[in-house]
Amino acid sequence: MVIGLTGGIGSGKSTIVKMFSEFENIAIYIADDEAKKLMNTSAEIKNQLITEFGEQVYINNKLNKPYLASIVFNNKERLSTLNAIVHPVVNKHLQHFIKENSNKDYILYENAILFENGSDSFCDKIITVTAPIDIRINRVIKRDNSTIEEVKSRIKNQWNETKKNLQSNYLIENITLTKSKEQVLKIHNYLTEKIS
């Protein structure tokens, strides 16, 4: 069983993933981390990125993140091109991970753009992490040293909360750690049919 976990920027997905990681018989796949690794290790991705964005996209065989970011930031077309190169390889990698972990109770698949890139199609259930917009903005400003404008523009690039919430099976309102932990445990119990 694959359980998608998503949420807007600043909703606190990483915190929730950490809470899930305390359960023994589940496997966790974090799309963003795996994509970063694959961009440095997959020959298929490397070749396509060099063809598309030029030789400078790698320095000493390492992804030149600032260079790539400067190209795709605020350019939806170039960002789509990047995603079209990276996502299929990540999806293949995920399918392999699912097979390898088929003995687990479920696989938690964390992806910030789960709906936006169509990855929700191979999830059995979906959890969306939410938080009031002002809390989300403050978290991102603290975390990334961003300005309010930068955060708002990043939020604008993601699906709106209502749209995500309507397509989710479970919602976790992530405001206080205690409340979030209770919600995580409840969902885990449902998923593993240990309903108390």
Results as ranks from 00 to 15, higher is better:
residue 155 I to E: 00
residue 106 Y to D: 02
residue 172 I to L: 11
residue 113 I to K: 03
residue 93 H to D: 14
residue 10 G to E: 03
residue 27 A to N: 06
residue 195 I to C: 08
residue 16 I to M: 06
residue 134 D to R: 12
residue 172 I to V: 05
residue 98 I to K: 12
residue 159 W to L: 13
residue 112 A to L: 05
residue 129 V to R: 03
residue 43 A to F: 10
residue 103 N to G: 01
residue 133 I to T: 10
residue 1 M to E: 01
residue 127 I to T: 02
residue 48 Q to L: 12
residue 152 K to P: 00
residue 121 S to Q: 15
residue 77 E to I: 09
residue 132 P to I: 09
residue 94 L to Q: 02
residue 20 F to I: 08
residue 140 V to E: 08
residue 34 E to R: 15
residue 81 T to I: 15
residue 129 V to F: 05
residue 185 L to P: 00
residue 42 S to R: 01
residue 173 E to Q: 15
residue 35 A to E: 02
residue 147 T to A: 02
residue 107 I to S: 05
residue 194 K to I: 02
residue 17 V to H: 07
residue 135 I to E: 08
residue 141 I to K: 10
residue 100 E to I: 03
residue 133 I to A: 05
residue 27 A to L: 04
residue 78 R to C: 04
residue 196 S to P: 09
residue 69 A to C: 08
residue 133 I to C: 11
residue 52 E to M: 14
residue 107 I to H: 01
residue 196 S to Q: 14
residue 133 I to N: 04
residue 191 L to T: 05
residue 168 S to N: 10
residue 126 I to D: 05
residue 186 K to E: 09
residue 28 I to R: 06
residue 174 N to P: 10
residue 148 I to H: 12
residue 149 E to G: 03
residue 140 V to T: 09
residue 189 N to M: 14
residue 96 H to M: 03
residue 63 L to S: 06
residue 46 K to Q: 12
residue 142 K to G: 09
residue 105 D to V: 09
residue 174 N to T: 07
residue 39 M to A: 07
residue 32 D to T: 10
residue 24 E to D: 13
residue 191 L to V: 07
residue 165 N to L: 13
residue 57 V to Y: 04
residue 161 E to Y: 05
residue 6 T to H: 08
residue 148 I to K: 15
residue 119 S to D: 13
residue 59 I to V: 14
residue 41 T to N: 13
residue 111 N to C: 15
residue 112 A to N: 04
residue 192 T to R: 05
residue 69 A to Q: 11
residue 190 Y to C: 06
residue 52 E to G: 01
residue 11 S to A: 15
residue 148 I to C: 00
residue 140 V to G: 10
residue 82 L to E: 01
residue 11 S to P: 04
residue 148 I to T: 11
residue 45 I to D: 04
residue 85 I to T: 08
residue 94 L to W: 03
residue 41 T to G: 04
residue 42 S to T: 09
residue 161 E to K: 15
residue 62 K to A: 02
residue 159 W to N: 10
residue 95 Q to K: 15
residue 124 D to E: 15
residue 157 N to K: 15
residue 147 T to G: 05
residue 96 H to N: 14
residue 112 A to W: 05
residue 109 Y to K: 05
residue 112 A to C: 10
residue 37 K to I: 13
residue 64 N to A: 10
residue 162 T to P: 00
residue 164 K to S: 04
residue 34 E to P: 00
residue 30 I to H: 05
residue 167 Q to G: 01
residue 79 L to H: 01
residue 70 S to I: 03
residue 30 I to V: 15
residue 130 T to P: 03
residue 52 E to Q: 14
residue 57 V to P: 06
residue 90 V to E: 02
residue 147 T to N: 10
residue 162 T to S: 14
residue 46 K to F: 02
residue 149 E to W: 05
residue 29 Y to C: 09
residue 48 Q to I: 00
residue 83 N to Q: 13
residue 176 T to D: 14
residue 25 N to A: 00
residue 183 Q to T: 04
residue 53 F to Y: 11
residue 74 N to D: 13
residue 18 K to F: 06
residue 66 P to T: 07
residue 101 N to T: 03
residue 12 G to N: 02
residue 120 D to S: 14
residue 125 K to S: 11
residue 134 D to N: 15
residue 174 N to I: 02
residue 38 L to V: 11
residue 105 D to E: 15
residue 62 K to Q: 13
residue 122 F to I: 02
residue 101 N to D: 01
residue 177 L to N: 13
residue 78 R to N: 13
residue 7 G to T: 02
residue 7 G to I: 01
residue 23 F to T: 06
